[in-house]
Amino acid sequence: MADAIVAEGLVKTYGSIRALDHLDLKVSEGTVLGLLGPNGAGKTTCVRILATLLRPDAGRVSVAGIDVLAHPQRVRQVIGLSGQYAAVDDNLTGYENLEMIGRLYQLGKATARRRAHELLERFELADAAKRTVKTYSGGMRRRLDLAAALITSPPVIFLDEPTTGLDPRSRLGMWDVINERVRSGSTLLLTTQYLEEADQLADEIVVIDHGRAIARGTANELKRQVAGERLEITVALDSEFEAVRAAVEKVCGEVPDADHLTRRVGAPAGSGTRTLLDVARLLDAAGIEPLDIGIRRATLDDVFLTLTGQAAEEDETKASGSATGSRQRTGRGKTGRDETEGVR
């Protein structure tokens, strides 16, 4: 399958900050790429370059087979963009916003009107269509901005944190709309802070930090790569604890993590459910009935925290060797926004 989005060796620096550091991306036509990364990792910078808003210092970019740097105007005809911050006009109504954007996509008057109405309906904004956007809630603005990105049903869509600020119901609604678009053939690159969202929507995930890709693969591949599966058993009685520990050690072939206080024993489950069954059989034979027994899969949260944590440690090791290695660390993990964002 052809690649709808290709980025090779993207570099973008702001003063001493390397927002992108030789980033490579490839998205096959009709698939979804999820771009994950902590605050300040370079996700927005990457999206802005792909969407013709920013020129990289180095690298090659093509979208739908068109060279973005050489023919930005042609690229603009085939993309829809919803940036990290809703870019809709406060003084226009929701309907006026969409109609204007449709017209500027060079749709005819009638088509622009029809699409505006359809999308307002689809994004549950029909009731607010005639109100100025000034009176919209944050989530409503966000939805209007997404509608604007989809007004021409573009073949390539960029969504920068599309569901940030949406309530759970709207988020599910958004996922539906996104899935619909992808099923009808669009290619999508989305960034997100919600790992569940990447898990749900993305065919492939690229985790970036400091402008570099630090891991890529499907959600399952990443989970396996980072943490694999673990067997975890909790027992009711102190007297059973030692027997369980021994059984797990025997099956898994290594000394398990055993916490006497919570009476929990855990170890990597090398053969998945096979391991679970083997241990269960041993315990059953010994007449032990655990409170809880199961295989726990790593979540993307684990992946994310492990990967970006590793990267952070490596950085610190490097930094301690040089006098100028004082790059500001910013908010990590799911909460805590980068200080450099926020005000713009």
């Binding site: 969407a51 013709t52 603009r76 870019a87 809709v88 954007i101 500027l104």
Partner: peptide
């Protein structure tokens, strides 16, 4: 510019002078 509307416009296939 500060409200980001110009970003929206710049991502559209419209005239750069418009």
């Amino acid at each position: 510019l500060t409200k980001g509307i110009v970003d929206r416009f710049r991502s559209l296939p419209m005239s750069r002078a418009a």
